[in-house]
Design a protein around this nucleic acid. Sequence first.
DNA 1: GCGCATTGCAAGCAAGCACTTGCGTTCGCT
DNA 2: AGCGAACGCAAGTGCTTGCTTGCAATGCGC
Lengths: 197, 197
Amino acid sequence: MHDRLLDAASEVFAEEGFRGATTRKIAARANVNEVTLFRHFASKEELLAAAIDRQVEASIAMLARTPLPAEPHDVSAELGRFLAATLFGFAASHRAVRTSLGEWGHHPALDERLTGTSRYVSDRVERYLVAAQDRGLIRGDIDPVVAAQALIATIFAHGMLHQMMPERFPLDPEESVAMYLKIMLEGLRPLHAGGSA
Amino acid sequence: MHDRLLDAASEVFAEEGFRGATTRKIAARANVNEVTLFRHFASKEELLAAAIDRQVEASIAMLARTPLPAEPHDVSAELGRFLAATLFGFAASHRAVRTSLGEWGHHPALDERLTGTSRYVSDRVERYLVAAQDRGLIRGDIDPVVAAQALIATIFAHGMLHQMMPERFPLDPEESVAMYLKIMLEGLRPLHAGGSA
DNA sequence: GCGCATTGCAAGCAAGCACTTGCGTTCGCT
DNA sequence: AGCGAACGCAAGTGCTTGCTTGCAATGCGC
């Protein structure tokens, strides 16, 4: 019951946002009486906070199954796998991601939770790129933090825009990541190694 | 009065979304009686549609003051100027952009309007990159549509994430665009021209 | 079989919502 | 001066919201 309410709350929140996720809708989706909802959670806000926590933990656990190695070897392959998994996750929950962006800033108690997955991803990519730069696998004259930003921002935005404007962002996750990496890794390649891929 | 209501509606909608933008709040922000609002617009939905139209037209007019040339010459400088202007616009209205993303899909009458600026930008960049590819200014083995996606997605996401996680996305518009272009243009450079910048 | 915890159900509450009605006031125009 | 358009104000309608109350039904352990 507890879990069913959390799942229902996540779904309705993703679809309708905080204001739209009424306690009646959540209870109905969980096949539970609205009163029962308030017997499990003191308030709507508390319920949604718990529901978002659950979702973030689940998505991070999912991403943790395709980790970035601590010591980079094949940057293209390793980043490709990780970013494809990330994009896959974003695309699967694009509605929740977009809602979170819209909702961010309105409910301070929820803000930090809402950015949890993004922080996890950017953290890993940053660390990986720093390590890759230490090993001379990518060029040394750019800030790895900025490079991580560019990569994540691209993946991130593509995951949403692909759903919103499919005629303009038509590629599926694997193709997209391959193409983006084709561009970006060429741009990140050590400068002394000239020429093509 | 009409215009004051439209401005107020844009502001409140950007801050609070469709549900949060109550007619009372909009009227109060415009220093107008709520009844007057309904004498100018038949419904809340009609008001917000008109308000969003206005905002989109204004932002496109702003972007049109820094156009991309029909015939590319200096890709880095020309794209840099255009994307900096785009990022500046996104950053200035980041709250509206995020709200639009969250709201998108809920009100079919608003959806097309909400993506107006994005469509304009991706349209221009796509055409520019196609022209640049025709002239051999960027490599020929990548889809210019995909390259445009990567550029816009990066600008787009940075404009939002810079506000939400300033400690992770700290650079201001000019710096950001310069860094992103440094990476991406290196990746887009014609393959026969090896070496560094 | 008894007690206790968990749920459902019907009803309701105060507040907020979009939107309406009626009436009086203030204008600029002729 | 007279007229009509545009506005403010007070009040109210019917609906939805988060949340509560009271009571009856179900189930599980002892």
